[in-house]
Amino acid sequence: MRNDVRALRLSGGLSQAELAGAMGVSRQTVNAIETGRYSPSLTLAVRLARYFERTVEEVFHVDCD
């Protein structure tokens, strides 16, 4: 699942560790989400979207085709 987490994080001047701390997950998990190796749970996806003041659809892009 593609996402804009890395772009949003960098635009906010945050490190992976800082975003991980804000979300209560490990830095490796943030990295895995950013690189598309891990699709977060609905709860974490919503929390990430709210953190960046976006909707989930604006942050995560599901390819349904």
């Binding site: 997950v25 490990s26 490796q28 998990t29 895995a32 891990y38 977060p40 749970s41 974490l44």
Partner: peptide, 18 residues
């Protein structure tokens, strides 16, 4: 290191639990 830390602990975030 994350893999070793995961062996040493039962808790963790959702990805680590998965």
């Amino acid at each position: 290191r994350e893999p070793v830390a995961m062996l040493a602990r039962e808790d963790g975030d959702e990805r680590q639990r998965a």
